[in-house]
């Protein structure tokens, strides 16, 4: 299993190939979104909507063998690409790792520059939601063990 920081570095490398070209970067983000495994329609409920995003983002998570697996989707292609980056980073990680590792890749790839302030705030909300899932699973594990 690749570590969170290893995946972050991978993403930074991939984006560096785009050489700061905004249009290509946005197209690339959307392409990543297209590759995100489909989320079951039944999971796209009001309860699973991430609050604080301008676009609609649905997210859910499950725990398997002490690792968390996320499913997510969005009604906009760019946001779907952004959430796919987070899913790629956090999927299969332990709650402890998700909670204790800081994300730095978005600063390195200059995300705010190409998604703007509002989407950056939405991105922060998605990250927070994933950490909340991690915290919930960690707490659940501690109570049951």
């Amino acid at each position: 299993m690749k570590s969170i920081n290893f995946i972050q570095d991978e993403i930074i490398n991939e984006f560096s190939l785009l050489d700061g070209d905004m249009e290509m970067t946005v197209f690339y983000v959307m392409e990543l979104g297209q590759k995100l495994p489909e989320m079951k329609e039944a999971l796209k409920t009001e309860d699973n909507i991430v609050k604080g995003c301008q676009s609609k983002v649905w997210m859910t998570a499950r725990m398997e063998d002490d690792k968390i697996f996320f499913e997510a989707d969005s009604n906009t292609a760019i946001t779907k690409g952004l959430v796919s980056l987070l899913v790629r980073i956090f999927n299969g990680q332990s709650p402890e790792h998700i909670l204790t590792t800081d994300l730095y890749f978005m600063h390195k790839i200059g995300m705010e520059r190409f998604i703007g302030t509002q989407r950056s705030n939405g991105f922060a909300s998605m990250t927070k939601q994933m950490k909340l899932y991690a915290l919930a699973f960690k707490t659940q594990k501690e109570i049951t063990s």
Binding site: E23, V26, M30, S55, T76, T79
Partner: peptide
């Protein structure tokens, strides 16, 4: 089939 936010964001890159 394309959300208006995506269109606006993509036009902004140009």
């Amino acid at each position: 089939g394309i959300h208006h936010f995506d269109i606006g964001q993509m036009l902004d890159t140009r």
